[in-house]
Design a protein around this nucleic acid. Structure first.
Lengths: 116, 116
DNA sequence: GTAATCAGTATCACAGAGTATACCAACTAC
DNA sequence: GTAGTTGGTATACTCTGTGATACTGATTAC
């Protein structure tokens, strides 16, 4: 009985985990979410804030994220056209994951440096 | 000044985030870590606990994770050879990330179901 | 007039992550 | 004797995420 409960729990956990990985998988989604949640609004601004990303990848990911309601894209069609990206409440639900990962990255760096 | 501090902070955050993504990237590492931390020790046991994984991917990832000191592999060479995988303390440092991701997966499922 | 910025799009190409399938030798269970 | 388990390896293949490079038209700045 305890065993069965444990097994079911594990199966449910893995699935939840795999769902999450599916949604935020890849190199760029979390860094982009993080950037926008940090207040970066303009395309080039976001681009500059993420080391290594290319225009193409940013463009693709933003498009997908807009479709999935992760970001809101607004166009101000004044003389020099201006585009702004904003995070949605849904986007902010990744906060804990991102924080945990930033924290891990910091600890990992310390660890590496101590080792060397 | 406040601006400069903010910028430096952001840059450091992204790098930490990207480091973490680099280490645990891909479809399988986190599910495997989770499985082993949950007490699964045998190869086939781990395999069965992760929906969709193939023998080959598990084998590859375990090998890599052993090299990176994420898991410990022990062979008991008794009549039917027995192999056991264990999590290392280092492996357990991913706990917070995994928990946050499981939590997100659960909420996401609720969200999807409510929507439908 | 030249360079730079903005918000992207268009092509091309590739490595490597991931999949599919079969197979091995040793052992157990029926 | 035959089917199943264990801990994997071998081979072949797909596919797509990612990268590199170039380009656009409008605008501003020198």
């Amino acid at each position: 009985m305890a065993k069965a409960a444990l097994v079911r729990n594990q199966a449910e956990e893995v699935k939840a985990l795999q769902d999450t990985i599916y949604v935020i998988g890849g190199k760029w989604k979390l860094p982009i979410i993080n950037s926008i949640c940090n207040g970066n609004k303009r395309f080039r601004e976001i681009e500059r804030s993420i080391p290594g990303i290319t225009t193409r990848m940013l463009s693709r990911e933003l498009k997908e994220m807009e479709m999935n309601k992760l970001v809101k894209r607004t166009v101000y069609p004044d003389s020099p056209v201006l585009v702004e990206y904003e995070s949605t409440p849904y986007c902010k639900t990744f906060g804990n994951i991102i924080l945990a990962m930033i924290e891990w990255g910091r600890e990992h760096k310390k660890y590496i440096q101590e080792e060397a």
